[in-house]
Design a protein around this nucleic acid. Sequence first.
DNA 1: TTAGAGACTTGGAACAATTTTG
DNA 2: CAAAATTGTTCCAAGTCTCTAA
Length: 701
Amino acid sequence: MKQSDRPSGVSSAVQCEAGGGGTHEDVKVDPDERNDGQQKPGSPEINNNKEKTRSKSSKQRHNHKERTADVKLCGEDENLCESVQVKKRRVKDEESPEKHDKNQSSGRKRKKTSSEHEKAEKNKKTKKDGDQEKKKKAEESDKWKWWEEGKSSDTQKWSSLEHKGPYFPPEYEPLPDNICFYYDGQPMKLSPATEEIVTFYAKMLDHEYTSKEVFQNNFFSDWKEEMTKEERKLIKMLSKCDFSQIHKYFVEKSEERKNMTKEEKQVLKEEASRLMEEYGFCLLDGHREKIGNFKLEPPGLFRGRGEHPKMGKLKKRIQPEDVTINCSQDSKIPAPPAGHHWKRVQHDNTVTWLASWLENIHGRPKYIMLNPSSKLKGEKDWQKYETARRLKMKVDSIRKQYRRDWTSREMKSRQRGVAIYFIDKLALRAGNEKDDESADTVGCCSLRVEHITLHRRLDGQEHVVEFDFLGKDSIRYYNKVPVEKQVFKNLKLFIKHKDPEDDLFDRITTVKLNKTLNECMPGLTAKVFRTFNASTTLQDQLNKLTTGGMTVEEKILSYNRANRAVAILCNHQRAAPKTFEKSMQLLQEKAVRNNHSDDGNRRATSSRLDSRVTRCLMLLEKKEKAVQRLSEQLKKLQLQETDREENKVIALGTSKLNYLDPRISVAWCKKHQVPVEKIYNKTQRDKFAWAIDMTDENFQF
DNA sequence: TTAGAGACTTGGAACAATTTTG
DNA sequence: CAAAATTGTTCCAAGTCTCTAA
């Protein structure tokens, strides 16, 4: 199926920053106003909203499912329904081994290219010490081309694994005597444990977090837990605590650090690389592999995203006694810090992690795992894209199927059909159930009635659904989408007799939905659609936007545009850069000052551009004959500005790293003679080494 | 069937290093 | 050359999805 057949409407998404509170009137959001219009996370509206929501636990919400169970589907489109499918037998999902045959044939011939590029790049950097040079070369020479070996087992992740265990953060260093905590105006010496917790808070003092009540309450109650009896007796109110001297101390310290001499910095750097050398690698099946996060997380205060009910809680220091080590039986078992022991040492080769512990905020496990450049991660990544490509072959019939479901006699089939449609068309996440101990965010299956507004007509379009909800990381999803009439009808049906805080899809869950998907295609789950649609979009856009006579710069611009289309689809947002508004303002001032000629519409996105424009304009004043050339230049700059403007709140990184089959990019680079380095930095090239090595210019997703 | 544990991917912000600009 | 802007890296939170036991 061609991209153009994919349900459209995604690119019209209007994105707003996190924290937008959902009012659900028929409000139009003007892109230019969205910054002003957006709500701060702490605003009353969002709180009200949350309270309402929270007052109904998921259990209660679930009860509603009973209530709606016997809703009758109105007859007009019943006739299509088939007999209820007899229940699903579970299809074991084996990743089909097709993947290797398919790709290696095309991959083999170009094996050399990547290392050639890297060498070329290195030669540029001859100025740096030859020491590192040598190291790099050595590393490169034994880079493990695992993708040239056959497919490895799905269940057994390794046959030998040896490592040094996690690196523990340094012990707490008490404050100097002249730095003090004050309670109720009086200086007070705290026990080291209590003092350490104080420093966590003091360091964050100028962060918005510390002004939030939830944060303060959580912090204070966790802090009290750790106080000595005497301290607890004295310290009764957070508002009487004065951390300002401690805060100042840390500000100065970080200032000092910034002002270190080159030599001092060099020493630190060497120390860090020694650490990396010792703890940063493991030996997996005889190959030295980089670890992703070998440092244990230091203690601190938990900072959730959005309105997290646990923000400010104390994240405790991890002790060796909390840590489970995973390595092979016959390997050198990592030594715990002196006087300590591990919680457990296990030798489970069906998992990929080297160490794990339970984090105390949610009680969930955390892991030390390998770097994305490793075989374990790379192979999985490759497999992910192969699954997405298999979906490409099946998506036609799946789309037919879910459209059929829209008119099913069964409510749950209709809901499932609409949900999969949303997941496919809008790249929504699956939306698992969440407990009430985390921020109130939703995905497709957990959408509530309050998150959509139906418009029979809107802005000249029919059957428009307006989405407004907080998704992963409390990033707001706001979009107005025209949908098929039948979808619209169904949605009206789904929300009938429901309260705003009831589930929109009360008859389905992510598990059931994924089960259905898995029956359509082994390995298919909701998230595959995101990968599939993202990669398809990139491929499509690249094919469309890249034309013959472009310069490399222009091609890269096209690439970024294609990348951006994907980021918009996936709703990947970032906070507008701090300097953005400021430089914008500056430019506008100057524009006013220079108020000459017609181009009132230019907008700066950086002072670099700004100054260039200014310079151009001044010349223009002096030399009339340069007018034409300059205005052309101006146009070009404006183009870049627009580009930047568009990029203001869009983050390209996530899609590039997680959703776009790297082979698309590599093939594009090769086909259009764009050096891969222009598209992928060093880290990215490491992660995608397999793709860079195996892909030729003819690859199409 | 369901809840909970577990393992792995995805995500933006903060921080650090590097490059550009004035 | 210092400051600002940009790019790259680290950090760790927050998702998805599978498996298991009751």
